[in-house]
Nucleic acid binder design. Structure first.
Length: 118
DNA sequence: GGTGTGACGCAGG
DNA sequence: CCCTGCGCCACAC
């Protein structure tokens, strides 16, 4: 098997798939980790977070939030700046970055259905 | 090959 | 509203 080590290649393809979806999220909107996981149709939301943690530097990671619209405290301040620039609908007190949450009721963006494995 | 950990999700108290 | 525990999948040790 010349490509028996496709395992590495597979993870690379997975990373690309996730980054591609995140890039498609329009300004002022947001999506969730689990939705992206469903869109790529592979693994779970945790792996999506891992990808963003390593390769998210090249994509609008701030448009990816948790199921409840919140974001990791470490990145909330950075994301808050983007939200204010993009006028992303927020919920709660913006003054308290710790309680920062995106109003998914209005900002939620559904990722394209995962491509049929033909 | 078991154990721990994580940019997650949900149910329960 | 808060925190806790458990399940989930992939990776590092």
């Amino acid at each position: 098997m010349t490509e028996a080590q496709s395992g590495k290649d597979a993870s690379e393809a997975y990373v690309e798939a996730v980054l591609r979806v995140v890039e498609q999220v329009p300004p002022g909107h947001a999506t969730t980790y689990s939705l992206i996981a469903e869109a790529v149709g592979r693994s779970g939301p945790r792996q999506v977070g891992r990808v963003l943690a390593m390769y998210g530097g090249s994509v609008p990671w701030w448009r990816v939030v948790r199921a409840d619209g919140s974001l990791p405290p470490s990145h909330q301040p950075a994301a808050l700046s983007r939200y204010r620039e993009e006028s992303t609908p927020l919920r709660g007190a913006i003054t308290d970055a710790r309680a920062l949450r995106v109003d998914l009721g209005r900002a939620l963006w559904l990722p394209p259905s995962r491509p049929p494995r033909t």
